[in-house]
């Protein structure tokens, strides 16, 4: 059974005060996420990621289309007991302590009293907030609130998790931890659906990704499949003052500045170029990936349709 089925969800807003005109936030979207997957929902800011998540959570009603989670309709309470949601930049009742908040959410999710106590301290430990019991949330930093957000999402041990920009507001260590958590959830058989605009996170974690831009789905599939048709680029810098003809044929672009030469080549030509430089006994200063293959794919997908179709030579 599919964990999430999005069947043509559409959202149009009316904008303007006097003369209302429709603005399309999400064009009919069809997606299917299998159980046990980590699914990345990628797109730049304002692409329609949060709108989609809000519709899945029943916060915003779609203009058309429908969706099912775990085979149930969106407003089915039985289904809602089995999902967890972390909103973007979450904010909570700031007069509560983290433990009180989780206790309250546990009650709302129908976790029974004994189980609740155990789970609250367990998830607080898990997200790295073991010693904040007496502190009201109004004193929490942004990163700590994000951790509380993760904690409340996994509190009731849900089968499907929805994370909206889970890494935002976190320091590198925090991001590492959230990644680990997601992998752990996957190992435990959970489904994770998360939105992000940070591609490295998606590339490292996701089984499959969807790319959305301007409310339109631009591509979906396993990372390896999507990137098979595109190649990343690498910038190589070495000491020297001329660009060898053999390098010129390999490089997409090259330039000489003082006594350093830089050239941009496709990932596939990277080894050939380095071999050439070695043969010439040139001193290599650096080899830097400019774009990973997913990023390259992403950039292509974000271009207007005709550009992606190859009109540009």
């Amino acid at each position: 059974m599919a964990a999430i089925e999005i069947l043509g969800l559409t959202k149009t807003y009316q904008v303007g005060f006097w003369r209302k005109r429709p603005k399309c936030a999400l064009q009919p979207l069809r997606l299917q996420v299998e159980e046990g997957e980590i699914f990345g929902f990628l797109g730049p800011n304002g692409a329609g990621k949060t709108t989609t998540l809000k519709m899945l959570m029943g916060l915003v009603y779609p203009s058309a289309g429908s969706a099912r989670i775990l085979g149930c309709e969106i407003n089915d309470p039985r289904m809602k007991a089995q999902i967890g949601f972390l909103p973007e930049q979450p904010y909570f009742y700031d007069y509560l302590t983290a433990a009180e908040l989780l206790e309250y959410y546990g009650q709302l999710s129908g976790v029974d009293a004994k189980e609740r106590k155990r789970r609250v301290s367990e998830v607080l430990d898990r997200v790295g907030l073991p010693n904040v019991s007496g502190m009201q949330l109004r004193k929490f930093s942004k990163g700590m609130l994000q951790r509380v957000g993760v904690a409340q999402a996994i509190l009731h041990n849900p089968r499907v998790l929805f994370f909206d920009e889970p890494m935002s507001g976190l320091d590198p260590i925090g991001r590492r931890e959230v990644r680990d958590l997601m992998e752990e959830l996957k190992r435990a058989g959970k489904t994770v659906f998360f939105s992000t605009h940070i591609l490295s996170d998606a590339e490292a974690l996701c089984d499959r990704v969807a790319i959305i831009h301007q409310g339109e789905l631009r591509g979906v599939g396993a990372v390896a499949d999507l990137t098979s048709s595109v190649q990343g680029k690498v910038e190589v810098v070495w000491r020297g003052n001329t660009v060898l003809p053999s390098v010129k044929t390999l490089a997409l672009d090259s330039s000489v500045t003082g006594d350093t030469v830089r050239a941009v080549v496709l990932e596939a030509s990277q080894d050939a170029l380095i071999d050439t430089l070695r043969r010439e006994r040139l001193h290599i200063v650096s080899v830097t990936p400019l774009r990973t293959s997913l990023e390259e794919y992403f950039v292509q997908k974000l271009r207007p349709a005709e550009a992606a179709a190859g009109v540009r030579s």
């Binding site: 809602k80 904010y91 009742y93």
Partner: peptide, 14 residues
């Protein structure tokens, strides 16, 4: 406004 509602209504709360 404070979006505290999101995490409540995504639970089995009508």
């Amino acid at each position: 406004e404070k979006r505290t509602l999101y995490t409540v209504l995504s639970r089995p709360v009508q």
